[in-house]
Structure formats: structure tokens, C-alpha cells
Design a protein around this nucleic acid. Structure first.
Length: 474
RNA sequence: GGCGCUAUCGUCUAAGGGUUAGGACGGAGCCCUCUCAAGGCUCAAAUACGGGUUCGAAUCCCGUUAGCGCUACCA
């Protein structure tokens, strides 16, 4: 059974790139009936924040893609140290006593080649190393990367294909910091091994790190998992998405607050760097799971097409609108209810009627936030008239005709979309005015807007009482 | 600087030796129409550049350019 993991570090809000990585992991796990492990990589105590942790959980929960197991790396330090000890013991690692400050500063910026290790430290005898460590001298534990002769490391990547790199180009990376805490490489590999992770799916920024991980897995005598690296999400100018430069666009919560449906957002994320290759775009969760494979993942970075004046990729908005109008109303209703509640409105309709109203208006909305804003008049008697709506009402004779329409509707035997249309058109014919005049004025007074569903559908949606009351108000 | 990865319409992508280079978003136009959407139809829009290999290259190879990543006692 495959075991996948998503391992965010709580040093910032949940980034949409991270969310996409999670989605791909989840899709693969579900596709192959595997387990989805959520592991909080909080080994960098300095930078961890509670706010960030909250943001990650909030964001992931919002996506509605549940995980099966949860771990905090900070609670697994013993395991990490144990692996470090084994590596040192078996001669795969060595202590580097070079003081942190004296180490590298200029060397690498000098550009003479890559920094590989600090002089003298690899050659230290085990006895001397032990003695200095026992004496309390601080040290960094480094991996002893095989050098003479160098080795060619290779692994197949499910997205990027066969990868290879010479150990001559890999520095003696740190395993343990001088304060004894594990670095990312060590902690991550130790956990992946212990958790028996079978597929490591992560950002392409880790592609070259993988060679270091290969070395650790090998030294630990652990079987190698499969790797799949994902192209990165970038800004329109090709730069990496960052909070400092791009602000709210890169945060998952921005989409939630803008009224996106979780699944529409997931669908959008999937289309960034992955394709089912059959021109499908609007896909259900089920379809996504069934269609997902690493072969469908593209190798070049994907641009999130936002602008300074509009933080949302137009395609994300389009997909959201598509889902909004095509998903079962029963599934949509709870989201609409929540959106209304958030905006301080409540639902005045019985359930059945509520669904009918949602059905009528959702076809012209693109986010959940449109329900309490553009659709406010459907849920509250307190709604503003746009200037354009005011204008329609001010057409000569309009108000009087609306009042007269109210009388006729009240007198009519039944009240329905068809009967309303019948009465309205008859009134227009008798008064010698174009039906459009009354229709547009009615929409204006009933909804506060000049745009929206068919006026007759509005009559039916609002119901007899509200319609009569509002028409008379004219 | 070293190493690695990438390069198809503005954006997301399809086509993995032979296609008028396809679809979608966005843009323009037409139809439908009580408004606005939706929907239908149409148009504009791409193989970074230069060499090879081949009867034939977006596709394979080499180079150039550009972008990105790694090169930390961050992850």
C-alpha cells in the first residue's frame, strides 16, 4: 500500500504552491488506495510560529482533502538523533569543529567553485573527534560524501525522468547543527524511512537535494522510495511566488475569503502543471482521482496569471463559476448558507424554496460572495438600488405600472412564473407600452439591479408576498 | 562561479518524426434575448534562436540565449 506524505514547515501561511503539492500527494494516495500522512516539519524552532501552524491546518481543512495520519517532527527528535549516531558510527558522517563564524563567508561568493567541506575536518581521527566532542567542543555533524573516487548517483524521477549527479558536486551537508538539533535533510529522511513512505512528491526545488537524500537512505540501509518532483508555481514575471513580493495572491486563505468553492480551487490547482491530456478541465473530485498520474505532470514552471489590480487568475474564477452552476444544489446550499451568515444575513426561506432561489441566481454568479452582495435582495428586504436600477424605475409611467401590476397579481387566481408573465404582458398590451419597460422596472425594484435572472424567474423566486410588497413600494 | 532542471498562442495546456500545431481561460465579433450571465458559432493569437540527424523535426542530438532551482549549522 502506497504511503504518501506532505511535510510543510510552519514558517509562513499556507502557500498555494504547497497546497498544490498536497493536492497531488492526496490524489495519488486516493487513486492507489494509499495513506496520506501529514507531517509538520517544525525542526527550525527559530522560525516556527503558531499562526503559521494554524494557517496550514485551516487551509488544508478548507480544501476538504482529509489526511490519514498526523505527526510533528519536533516530537521525533530522538529518532533523528539515533540515525545521526548510526551514521557517525558506521563512518558515513564526521564531526566538523570549524566555528560557525569562521567557516564559509567569502569562499562561495568568490566563485572559484562549489564549497565542499571545511579543511582538515574529514581527516580527524575517530579518537580525536571523540575526545574533542567529550571535552564539550561544539561541532556540526556532516555527511562524509564519497569523493575519491567520486561516485555517480542516479535515481528515476517520475516526472523529470532519469536523474544523475556526481558526488564531486555535492558538499558535505550538515546532519546535526552545533546545538544538536537535526537539519531538514536528516530529519526528513529519518522520518520518511521510519514512516515507510513509498512516494515522495514535492516541489522541484528539492530535485537536487534528492541526491543527498539518496546518500542518507543508502547509508541507513533503507529502501529507496519513488520520487516525483513538481514544477514550481511562479508569478507572471517568472519569479518565485513570495509573500513579500506578491502579497495575498499566494495565500490559500485569500481564495477562501474571496468566495471560492474548495473543490473549484483544487480543480484549478490541478490544472497548473498537470493535464488529463483529453481536454477535460472542469472535473469532479472523483474524476480527478481517477485521471491523476505522474505522467500527466508537466516539467516546466507554471505561471499563476494574476495582476496587481486583480489577484485572481481568470481561469480560477471561471472554474469556480462553472462548479457553482453545475454542482448539485444540495451540495452547494451549505456553502451559500455559510456565505450569507458570514455577511450577517440569514436565510428567510424554507429549505426547498432556498434551493430553488439558489438555482435561479447561481447561473450568473462566479463566487460564493456574490450571494450576499449581488444577490442580497433575494435574502433581505434591506437592499440598495444601483443608479442604473433607479433610472429604470424613473422611466415615465414605470412606477404606476408596477403598482397596477401588483394589483393584478394580487387579484390573479394563482402566482407562478407563467402567470406573472401572462399578467405583465397583458398589462403592457393594454397600456400600449413595451413589455420591456415593465420587465426592466420590475427587476430594478425587486432586486435593486438591472442585471440578473429573467424577471419572471425573479417573481417566482421571491414569492408572492415579497413581490407584491416591493412592487407597491414603487 | 559550479551543478541541475526547463523552454508550444498573453496564461494553463494537447500533439512524444508526417496534423491546416488541437482545446481552455482571457480578448474581438455574431446569434439567442426582458437585462445580465450562460449557451452556440466565428475571428485574432504559439513551437525562443542557431546548427545538425532524417525523405520529413514542435517532437531526436549539439550549441546559444533566457528563466528557475540547489550550492546554509533554512526547509
Amino acid at each position: 500500500m502506497p504511503r504518501l506524505r506532505f511535510a510543510p514547515s510552519p514558517t509562513g501561511f499556507l502557500h498555494i504552491g504547497s497546497a498544490r503539492t498536497y493536492v497531488f500527494n492526496w490524489l495519488y494516495a486516493r487513486r492507489h488506495r494509499g495513506a496520506m500522512v501529514l507531517r509538520i516539519d517544525d525542526t527550525d524552532l527559530e522560525r516556527n510560529t503558531q499562526a503559521s501552524l494554524d494557517s496550514i491546518f485551516d487551509g488544508l481543512r478548507w480544501l476538504e482533502l482529509e489526511w490519514d495520519e498526523l505527526y510533528h517532527q519536533s516530537q521525533r527528535l530522538e529518532l533523528h538523533r539515533r540515525l545521526a549516531a548510526v551514521l557517525l558510527d558506521k563512518g558515513f558522517a564526521y564531526r566538523d569543529f570549524t566555528p560557525a563564524s569562521a567557516a564559509e563567508p567569502e569562499e562561495k561568493s568568490r566563485g572559484a567553485g562549489p564549497w565542499l567541506f571545511n579543511p582538515g575536518m574529514r581527516e580527524l581521527s575517530r579518537a580525536e573527534s571523540d575526545r574533542r566532542a567529550a571535552a564539550g567542543e561544539p561541532f556540526v555533524l556532516r555527511f562524509l560524501v564519497p569523493r575519491d573516487p567520486p561516485r555517480l548517483l542516479r535515481f528515476p524521477d517520475a516526472v523529470y525522468g532519469e536523474q544523475q549527479k556526481s558526488t564531486a558536486d555535492i558538499e558535505d551537508f550538515a546532519l546535526l547543527r552545533s546545538d544538536g538539533t537535526p537539519t531538514y535533510h536528516l530529519a526528513s529522511c529519518a522520518d520518511d524511512i521510519e514512516m515507510r513512505i513509498t512516494h515522495i512528491v514535492r516541489g522541484q526545488d528539492h530535485l537536487t537535494n534528492t541526491f543527498k537524500h539518496l546518500l542518507i537512505f543508502e547509508a541507513a540501509g533503507a529502501p529507496l522510495p519513488e520520487f516525483a518532483h513538481l514544477p514550481l508555481l511562479v508569478a507572471p514575471d517568472g519569479s518565485k511566488l513570495s509573500k513579500r513580493r506578491h502579497g495575498a495572491v499566494v495565500s490559500v486563505t485569500t481564495y477562501r475569503e474571496a468566495g471560492f468553492l474548495p473543490h473549484a480551487f483544487v480543480n484549478f490547482l490541478c490544472l497548473l502543471g498537470w493535464s488529463p491530456k483529453d481536454n477535460r478541465e472542469l472535473m469532479s473530485r472523483r474524476e480527478l482521482i481517477e485521471a491523476f498520474s505522474f505522467e500527466g505532470i508537466n516539467r516546466s514552471n507554471a505561471v499563476v496569471n494574476f495582476r496587481p489590480d486583480d489577484p485572481f487568475d481568470p481561469k480560477a474564477l471561471w472554474l469556480n463559476a462553472q462548479h457553482l452552476r453545475s454542482m448539485p444544489v444540495d451540495e452547494l446550499a451549505p456553502y451559500v448558507l455559510r456565505a450569507l451568515e458570514t455577511a450577517g444575513l440569514s436565510n428567510p426561506y424554507p429549505p426547498e424554496k432556498f434551493r430553488a432561489v439558489v438555482e435561479v441566481i447561481r447561473t450568473r454568479f462566479s463566487t460564493l460572495n456574490d450571494f450576499p452582495t449581488r444577490g442580497r435582495a433575494y435574502f433581505s428586504d434591506d437592499y440598495p438600488l444601483t443608479p442604473e436600477a433607479q433610472q429604470k424605475l424613473d422611466q415615465p409611467g414605470a412606477r404606476a405600472l408596477l403598482r397596477e401590476l401588483a394589483e393584478r397579481l394580487e387579484a390573479a387566481a394563482e402566482f407562478s412564473e407563467a402567470s406573472a408573465e401572462h399578467e405583465l404582458r397583458r398589462l403592457a398590451a393594454e397600456r400600449g407600452v413595451k413589455a420591456g419597460l415593465i420587465i426592466n422596472a420590475a427587476r430594478a425594484i425587486l432586486t435593486g439591479q438591472t442585471v440578473g435572472p429573467s424577471a419572471f424567474a425573479v417573481f417566482a423566486a421571491l414569492g408572492r408576498d415579497r413581490v407584491l410588497e416591493r412592487l407597491r413600494r414603487a
